[in-house]
Simulated scan of single mutants.
Amino acid sequence: MEENIRKLMGLLKPMKVNIRPHLKTTKSPILAQKLVDAGATGGCVAKLSEAEVMAEAGFDDLLITCEIVGPVKLRRLVELFRNHRKIQIVVDSELGAVAVNEALSSSGIEQPIQVLIDLDVGLHRTGVAPESALALAQQITLLSHLRLIGVQGYEGHLQHVHGRETREAQCRDSMAILTTTASMLRQNGFDIQVVTTGGTGTAEFCATTPGITEVQPGSFIFMDSDYYNAVGGFFSQSLTILSTVISKSGSEHRVTIDAGLKSLPTDSGFSEPKNMPGVTYTPMGDEHGWLSWDDGPDVPLGARVEMIPSHIDPTINLHDFYYAHRKGVIEEIWPVATRGKVQ
């Protein structure tokens, strides 16, 4: 893990962009601080509830990358911002911006919250269309409790594209949308200081694009089999789920482990046993999974098997603690502090 952090900083720091890692991966203020100590500038979180936990732990230089909509969440945002003025948010609609402004203006807080326009650069999940960004920026300037500081554009649909050249070419197209829109806003008098984007699969391309000021990689710190198979082995797979062989019934070429759907998500394919070539994993319900092979050594009852997750973020959200070990010795135990914080 430490080597992955060093590699990322060594790769991106010379490119003169801020590195704001996405903490929806680690879900840990302890690891957030380790990343800042290594050279990161604050962090990102996906949800308001993640920001609440991070800020309470003393880590509040945060960009919340998902829109905050609805009266319950807006009340929580007001209380978070009341005590943590570094918080930044994104908006992608006039309605959403007005609602945030009304919540803050009725709170007695005078300082405006820093806002980025969320721009759709091809993912089509959230974000205003580029041709509508100017109108939204103009609306934000009319709102006393919002201060527009930048634009965000996440090309999430490109993170796992196989083939470096293909991934880079498609990423450059998305970056052109983002930087062109930022330049257009500046030409119309808006002080666009932050242009933030990127993930583990594209951060180096984003960082070398003129006009990009900040990147948001997250999964690099641990990696998973889906990312690893797509982008290669520059970063190591540094997190595994430790399982146990609990049954050998049914077949001489198959055993059952105690890691099923409650331990290892399957949205990006099945997890992979570490250092067990020819052995495949199949989930067999909530609590169980099969390890199967055609030829090879027998896997004994009670054997401990390390499983490499296929998708790191939802895997971490299923577990309570990290066990940080070096050369077979557990050095530290870190809580997954924002586990379940999806509000």
Rank of each mutant, 00 (worst) to 15 (best):
Y227W: 11
S144M: 01
L95K: 15
A337R: 05
I333C: 06
N18W: 11
F222E: 04
V305L: 03
P283Q: 11
Y154K: 04
E306G: 04
T179I: 01
F270I: 09
K24F: 03
L158F: 01
L146S: 07
K13A: 09
I212D: 00
I5K: 04
T197Q: 01
L261Q: 14
P277V: 02
H124W: 12
L8Y: 01
I64P: 01
G218W: 01
G189M: 10
I246M: 06
T280E: 09
F205M: 12
G42N: 07
D267Y: 09
P210C: 06
I312K: 07
A176W: 14
K274N: 05
V161M: 07
P14L: 00
V231N: 06
V45K: 03
M276K: 08
S132G: 11
D191K: 14
K341Y: 11
G328C: 05
P300Q: 10
G156F: 03
N101P: 02
L261S: 14
V151S: 01
K262Y: 12
D224Y: 05
G43F: 05
Q187N: 14
G289V: 07
R339Q: 13
P130R: 02
F81Q: 06
L74W: 08
L123C: 14
P71F: 09
G96L: 05
I246E: 09
P277A: 10
G108I: 07
S132W: 09
D298I: 14
G39E: 00
E2S: 07
P309G: 04
A103E: 02
A46P: 05
T244R: 15
A38N: 00
E2F: 13
I117H: 04
T240V: 13
Q139Y: 13
H124E: 14
G199D: 07
T180H: 12
L23H: 09
Q216W: 08
D173E: 14
I241Q: 06
P29W: 02
A169K: 11
I30H: 12
R82L: 05
P283H: 13
Q88D: 06
V151A: 06
V100L: 11
A57D: 04
S247G: 15
K7G: 01
M223Y: 04
T240R: 11
R82E: 13
A230W: 04
Y154D: 01
M223K: 04
H162K: 15
S106F: 10
T25W: 01
A137M: 10
D313I: 14
A40L: 00
Q187R: 10
R167E: 07
L48Y: 02
K86G: 10
P265Y: 10
H124S: 14
L239C: 04
S225M: 13
A99S: 13
E56R: 15
L95D: 13
F205W: 08
I109R: 02
D258E: 07
L264W: 01
I221R: 02
P130L: 02
L264Y: 03
Q33C: 07
T180M: 05
I149P: 02
E272W: 10
G96Y: 06
D294T: 12
P265M: 11
G296N: 09
A303Y: 12
I30C: 02
V72A: 12
E110N: 15
I140P: 00
T26P: 02
E204K: 08
S219N: 06
K7F: 05
G108D: 10
I312Q: 00
Q152D: 11
A133V: 12
M15G: 03
D37A: 08
N101L: 07
